[in-house]
């Protein structure tokens, strides 16, 4: 037993060096060559960082495309989902409220046009994406608030849609931050 104990302690010490010093330093070194140099890819506007490419942020102004509801208010230092169960009455009332809000700002919509991702909170609370349908239903509002034609905005949505992986696997998505920054560019 004593023999195993000594061996265990020594082996643990050796492995700590290999697994917790050598391994992560190799990864950190290699990651330095990635976009964002290992600190996460940032997006800048006029030389200022306005966000991270992968992290969703809150958009509520009428001239922007809105992202998904977030259970943590897009707090990137405390991610979280709602963890509400599907039969929870309180939760269903919240969803119902979100539908009403959407209908208020988009009076031209029918309920059946609204996709599920616009009325449900994401898992991380930081979802950077919305579905194609979620962008399509907002085009009219955004165009009206910016004095643009529906067509110009719709074209921008198409341009900012990322298709499935290799064109075959998974859903099509739209990065809300990138789409909105492209909108701001368009105005100029």
């Amino acid at each position: 037993m004593k023999k195993y104990l000594l061996q265990s302690i020594r082996l643990t010490a050796v492995l700590l060096v290999l697994l917790c010093v050598v391994y992560p330093l190799i990864v950190a070194f290699a990651g330095g060559f990635s976009k964002g140099n290992g600190g996460g890819e940032k997006i800048t506007k006029n030389g200022k960082v306005v966000g991270y490419a992968l992290i969703g942020q809150n958009f509520s102004k009428p001239e922007y495309f809105w992202g998904r509801p977030s259970a943590v208010g897009y707090n990137a230092a405390g991610s979280g989902g709602s963890n509400k169960g599907p039969s929870n009455e309180e939760y269903l009332a919240v969803v119902s409220g979100r539908i009403d809000t959407l209908l208020k700002y988009h009076p031209y919509l029918k309920k059946a046009d609204i996709p599920a991702d616009m009325v449900t909170a994401s898992g991380s609370g930081l979802d950077p994406n919305i579905s194609e349908q979620a962008a399509i239903i907002q085009i009219k509002r955004v165009a009206a608030n910016r004095g643009l034609t529906d067509r110009a905005v719709a074209e921008l949505v198409v341009k900012n849609t990322e298709g499935p992986l290799l064109g075959m696997f998974g859903p099509s998505v739209i990065n809300v931050l990138k789409l909105n920054l492209a909108l701001d560019e368009l105005k100029k």
């Binding site: 998904r68 989902g81 709602s82 963890n83 509400k84 599907p86 539908i99 309920k111 059946a112 046009d113 609204i114 996709p115 599920a116 991702d117 009325v119 449900t120 909170a121 994401s122 898992g123 991380s124 979802d127 950077p128 994406n129 919305i130 579905s131 349908q133 998974g170 859903p171 998505v173």
Partner: peptide
């Protein structure tokens, strides 16, 4: 009356 063409989305990520 909401359209759930892809499925249930609460707690899920679009990507």
């Amino acid at each position: 009356g909401i359209s759930q063409t892809t499925g249930a989305m609460e707690g899920k990520e679009v990507r």
